[in-house]
C-alpha cells in the first residue's frame, strides 16, 4: 500500500463524516460551557495557596529564631524546618512558572506544550516525594512545636532515655523514607503490593512522563 492510497481512504472517510455526523446545534447550546472549570487555573490557585502558607511558615520560623536568641537547640531545629520550607517554596515556584507558561491553554504547538505538561507532572510528583523527607525528623519538630505552642522545654526537662527513643524512632522513619524514595526511583518495582502502594505516590505517572518526554525529544530530533 502507498501513502496516496491511504489519502484516498481518508478522503472517503471525510465524505462519510459529512454524511453521518450529526451535531444537533440546539442541544449543543445546552452545554454549560460557562461552568466548565479550567483544571490549570484550579492547580494555579492551589499552588498560590501553598506558596502563601509556605511564606507564612517561613516568616514565622525566621521571627521565632530571631526572638529565641540563645536557645540553640530550638534555633537549629527551626533552621532545619526552614530549609524544608524554602526548598518546598522553590518547587512550588517552579510549578507556578510552568503553569504560567501553559496558561494560554492548549493552543501552543504540540511538541513543546506536551513537554511542558510532562515536566509539570514530574514536578508535581517530586513535590509529593519532597513532602515525605521531613518525616524522620518529626520527633524533633514535635519538640519544637511543644516549645512554641506550650512553652514546654523538652531539652531542659527530659533525660537521655527520651532522646534515645527519639533517635530510634527517627532512624526507623528514616529507613522507611529511604526505602520509599529508593522504590520511587526504580523503573520497575517487582513486589505487586509495593507497586500498588507506590502507584498512589505518583511512581507510575513519573515513569510514564519520563518515557513520553524521551519520545517527544526523539520526535523533535532531526535525523
Amino acid at each position: 500500500m502507498e501513502l496516496h492510497e491511504l489519502q484516498t481512504m481518508w478522503n472517503e472517510y471525510d465524505k462519510k463524516l459529512d454524511d453521518s455526523l450529526k451535531l444537533n446545534r440546539q442541544l449543543f447550546r445546552e452545554l454549560k460551557l460557562d461552568k466548565a472549570k479550567s483544571k490549570l487555573r484550579t492547580l494555579m490557585n492551589v499552588k498560590i495557596a501553598e506558596l502563601i502558607v509556605q511564606f507564612i511558615m517561613g516568616g514565622f520560623l525566621i521571627w521565632y529564631m530571631v526572638k529565641s536568641a540563645g536557645k540553640l537547640p530550638f534555633i537549629a531545629t527551626a533552621l532545619v524546618l526552614l530549609g524544608f520550607v524554602l526548598v518546598g517554596m522553590v518547587l512550588s515556584l517552579k510549578q507556578v512558572f510552568i503553569i504560567k507558561q501553559i496558561k494560554r491553554g492548549y493552543s501552543g504547538a504540540i511538541a513543546p506544550l506536551q513537554k511542558k505538561l510532562e515536566k509539570l507532572k514530574i514536578l508535581l510528583v517530586q513535590y509529593v516525594k519532597w513532602s515525605y523527607l521531613p518525616i524522620p525528623l518529626s520527633p524533633l519538630f514535635t519538640v519544637l512545636g511543644a516549645e512554641i505552642w506550650f512553652k514546654y522545654d523538652f531539652f531542659a526537662n527530659k533525660s537521655g532515655d527520651f532522646w534515645w527513643w527519639c533517635f530510634g524512632i527517627g532512624v526507623l522513619l528514616f529507613a522507611f523514607v529511604a526505602w520509599l524514595n529508593h522504590q520511587l526511583n526504580q523503573e520497575t518495582i517487582k513486589p505487586f503490593w509495593v507497586r500498588n502502594f507506590l502507584n498512589g505516590s505518583g511512581w507510575s505517572q513519573i515513569n510514564a512522563a519520563n518515557a513520553f518526554l524521551k519520545e517527544i525529544e526523539n520526535f523533535e530530533k532531526e535525523d
Binding site: 481512504m9 472517510y13 453521518s20 455526523l21 451535531l23 444537533n24 452545554l31 454549560k32 466548565a36
Partner: peptide, 24 residues
Amino acid sequence: QSIHDAIIEIGDETQDTESNSGLL
C-alpha cells in the same frame, strides 16, 4: 461533565475491519 448522547453520533470505524476506513 457528561454530554447529551444525542449530540454526537459517530460510527465506530475501528470495528469495521473489512472496509477501507477500518484499514485506515
